[in-house]
């Protein structure tokens, strides 16, 4: 199993949209995927269904109110995709948890997910690097850094890399899967300039090849509570963006090598 977190200093860069659509694409590609919402705002749940607000989830597991992950995970219409909503953050906060226990509980969560047969665990985080997000990122194998393609947002890139460098110096093995440029505006010269500058400054292995453009369809999908691929009967072209990112993730994290190592290919008629 591979655990991937998203992290960004700035809010509103499309982390939750990325997590939902990326998880859906990974699941469609055959990976058993668990999307975990660690953002107390519960953006994942709010994006997908009204009822998730009342469900138990990540924070209930964290504070020990429910220790069985299997009771918290929500199934979706795609069998390979499961969701662990944020849960009842306020109730969990009242109950309290010891900060020093968080890494252990996160390790328990990852272990329980692996026991469920999860191949890929995607963790959506709150904006900024608070203590919880820091623990989540440290617990994961890889981190994706969504960066809004606008000057102010990308100026925080060195700060973010500095922070991740500190994590590594503290012994965390989390690797940067790449910086993903989001909300790219094709018609904006400034936005394009930001894209070009970052791609010039950073080596290709640090940048996802695929950008995420700013499109109305993402808003529409969010309003309807579905991944963009489910917006229409025939998935719109922009759904392929996340398929492409999923394919890049497979390569960058070694996910595909894991399966190739354990599964031999099958012929079409097998």
């Amino acid at each position: 199993m591979i655990a991937i977190a998203t992290a960004s200093q700035k809010g509103g860069v499309g982390k939750t949209t990325l997590c939902i659509n990326l998880s859906y694409s990974l699941a469609k590609r055959g990976w058993s995927t668990l999307l975990v919402d660690t953002d107390p705002q519960g953006g994942v749940g709010l994006s997908l269904a009204r009822s998730t607000r009342s469900k138990l989830g990540f924070y209930d597991f964290l504070c020990g109110a429910e220790r069985d992950l299997n009771r918290l995970v929500l199934a979706t219409r795609l069998p390979e995709l499961q969701i662990l909503p944020a849960g009842q953050y306020d109730a969990a906060a009242r109950r309290g948890w010891a900060p020093q226990d968080v890494p252990t509980r996160l390790a328990d969560l990852l272990r329980a997910a692996e026991l469920r047969g999860v191949d890929c665990l995607i963790m959506d985080t709150a904006a900024g690097l608070n203590a919880m997000t820091e623990s989540v990122v440290k617990a994961c194998d890889h981190v994706i850094l969504p960066q809004q393609a606008e000057p102010l947002a990308v100026r925080s890139v060195p700060h973010m890399l500095e922070t991740l460098s500190r994590f590594r110096s503290e012994g965390a093995g989390v690797k940067v899967a790449g910086i993903l440029l989001t909300m790219v505006m094709g018609e904006s010269k400034i936005s394009q300039k930001v894209v070009n500058e970052l791609r010039t400054l950073l080596p290709p292995d640090m940048m996802f090849e695929q950008n995420v453009p700013r499109l109305n369809s993402f808003l529409e999908a969010s309003a309807m509570g579905v991944p963009v691929a489910l917006l229409k009967r025939n998935p719109p072209p922009e759904a392929l963006i996340f398929d492409q990112i999923a394919a890049e993730i497979e390569q960058r994290t070694g996910l595909v090598q894991d399966r190739e190592a354990s599964h031999s290919h099958a012929s079409l008629l097998d």
């Binding site: 000057p151 460098s165 400054l201 640090m206």
Partner: peptide, 19 residues
């Protein structure tokens, strides 16, 4: 430059991340 990112600093940071 609009990103205000120093290339030298960035190279050093990337080096540390790859260590």
């Amino acid at each position: 430059q609009v990103s205000w990112i120093d290339e030298t600093d960035m190279t050093a940071l990337l080096g540390r991340l790859r260590d």
